[in-house]
Nucleic acid binder design. Sequence first.
DNA 1: GCATGGTTGAATTT
DNA 2: AAATTCAACCATGC
Length: 521
Amino acid sequence: MAFGSSSLIWFRKGLRIHDNPALDYASKGTAALYPVFIIDPHYMKPDYNAFSPGSSRAGLNRIRFLLESLVDLDSNLKKLGSRLLVLKGEPGEVLFRCLKQWDVKKLCFEYDTEPYYQALDVRVKNGGKPPLTYQSFLKLAGEPSWASSPLMTSRSSLPLVGDHGDCEIFEVPTLKELGYEDTEQEDYLTPFRGGESEALKRLRDSLSDKEWVAKFEKPKGDPSAFLKPATTVLSPYLKFGCLSSRYFYQCLKDVQKIVKKHTSPPVSLVGQLLWRDFFYTVAFGTPNFDQMKNSTICKQIPWNDNDELFAAWREGRTGYPWIDAIMVQLHKWGWMHHLARHCVACFLTRGDLFVHWEKGRDVFERLLIDSDWAINNGNWLWLSCSSFFYQYNRIYSPISFGKKYDPNGNYIRYFLPILKDMPREYIYEPWTAPLSIQTKAKCIIGKDYPKPVVLHDSASKECKRRMGEAYALNKKFNGLVSEEELSSLRKRLEEEDDKKNQVQEVKTKKQKTIDDWMSTK
DNA sequence: GCATGGTTGAATTT
DNA sequence: AAATTCAACCATGC
């Protein structure tokens, strides 16, 4: 073995062989190649204090997806005469030790170091100002230079794996070995399997219906479709790099060459890939992108701090079956249709509960198998009308929105089996069902399934009012709202709301007295 | 400074 | 069911 000419590829994301520039570069002109993945116990070990099964950082479904992806990567490496070297420990320390001990001369990992990308960065960065709209992003980004250049999508061999000395090498662990128990219970198992092989299979399946690919229009999918989702579900594979976004992009362009009549960005499938890069660009160029405070793009809004409402949302017991079913799908599958994500995000924040978007963001971040820092934060900013999108009067109805796709409530019946026998006229508003119907459906509202935590009509009105006031405050101070201003607005809004509720209470009391009096007559 | 258009609504009318 | 109206705010770009 050529001494001192070995290289190491550090897999973090980019868990694939096809079109993997870091792998190509690492294996070029080297005698030995160390393909390494480091298991960070902090990321992987069970955390029993978390609100759902999983580690402190990730839900069980995403950990499972990652392990499956690693097993697949290892098997694909083995087909090429190599293997995955799994190490354990704090990644920085472990890597440093290996580099030294193995005398590695070249360390490669997924980061765009090519001059082309650096040049692109400068252009896209637009003089330090990231574009804040999709259209202006498109203009700045233009057509990628690799749009029609061949990619390395297959290879016949890899350099031999170098001697790993006395470093302890592991196989990809199972969930059980990581300390998780009862993981085979069908109930909480995402139907989506991880790995490059699965990604490429899914890509081929999606692309086989060329008409469907060409006509894809994002806002038009059916969020209640779950047996056969209305989108490609390639996002988790893109997230972990099991699928190359460039390869995906080229495949889509190839379809467009065949089917001339096709949709365009932002609604087309290519458009979806570009949304990814739009959010990466803004997120990279915006300080404090993932928070409200000290953000240059986030509206300062006096969200409330109601942990009971937040917990009800998180656990899928708001009393709105459409909302709760979506949250159950999030827990069980780690994936929902994008419009379903919109509904629950809107409901939690500006639509009904007025809870801080950062709290919802954290829940998605943990539970989604495709959670991606920039995209997740970007969408929560969007849906909460904190940035990018500002029409806070447009609120998804937790009753009628789902109904127009799924009037029979099949989606609700599947994810909330307690409601499976509720007649279709009450499935979206079970609290309106007469008690006799509830009894017959074996689901008493308030006992077997919760009453609504808020009344949508009055709650959404109150939310709009608060958003209006908050927007006015942001305008007044040109976005630079101090904490004092914000908390004084919060106080005022809550006091006004309390007063209203008191008036309402008096009214209902009066009405009740009248009713009682009438009934005695 | 001002007109324009914007992936992702709802209510109402036809 | 599809079309129309409503109401609305911002980044962009001239």
